[in-house]
Each structure stands twice: as C-alpha cells, then as structure tokens.
C-alpha cells in the first residue's frame, strides 16, 4: 500500500516543470526561511521522498508548514493538485513514523 501511495505521489510530482510561478501566491514561502516553504519546493521534496529520499529535518518542515490553502493551484501550469500531494505525503509519513495504521483503502486516499 505504501508503494501505491508512493507511486501516485511520484506520478503527480513528476509533472512539475519547476517554473516557480506557484511561489508568487504562497504565503509561507514569503515568510519562511527557504524555498522548501513554497509549493515548488514541497512538490520537489515529495518527489525526492517518493524516490526513497530521507525524511530530513527540512523535508518535514516543508511538508508540515503547508497551510493547504491552495493558492498555488491558481498558478500551476501543470495542474498539480498541490495540497492533496502534501496531505498524502503526510499520510505516508504518518504511516511509517507516527504509528498510524494502514487500514484505509488506497482508492479512498487518492481518488
């Protein structure tokens, strides 16, 4: 199941063209300490995590500092569902690190 989530995340985040336009509307990147606090950073960190990257200190900051406010989605030319990517990535982390069980069916998570 983790693998299904991971492959969905990888597919979705691979769409990012790194244009950075999302950063214009993101409230957290403006006041955060680096680009990891912006949608482009988050999407690419999730891509990195989906390719067996490490849940580093900054990777977690990136994931959990997101407001899920969806302002970025107004600008994304690749039409990535950015807040959903973040939420699912948190869910993946919770399963592996926060003793969250895996009962929830995958289809429900990313349909």
């Amino acid at each position: 199941m983790n693998n299904n989530l991971k492959s969905w995340l990888k597919k979705e985040t691979s769409k990012c063209m790194f244009c950075g336009f999302c950063e214009a509307l993101c409230p957290t990147v403006r006041f955060g300490s680096h680009r990891g606090y912006g949608p482009r950073g988050r999407i690419n960190i999730v891509l990195y995590l989906s390719e067996e990257g490490k849940y580093t200190h900054e990777a977690l900051n990136s994931l959990y500092s997101c407001l899920l406010c969806a302002a970025c989605t107004l600008k994304c030319p690749a039409n990535i569902d950015i807040p959903e990517v973040i939420r699912v990535a948190r869910s993946l982390y919770a399963r592996n690190n926060l003793k969250e069980k895996e009962e929830v069916v995958i289809e429900k998570e990313v349909s």
């Binding site: 680009r35 990891g36 482009r40 950073g41 990195y48 990257g53 490490k54 580093t56 990777a59 990136s62």
Partner: peptide, 14 residues
C-alpha cells in the same frame, strides 16, 4: 544548510 532534501531543490532548474 546541508539538508539533503533541501539541497535537492536548490540543485534543480526548469
């Protein structure tokens, strides 16, 4: 910062 995840995003381009 030398955080590996962070380095990744500063290593990419469009």
């Amino acid at each position: 910062s030398v955080d590996e995840a962070l380095l990744r995003i500063y290593s990419k381009d469009p």
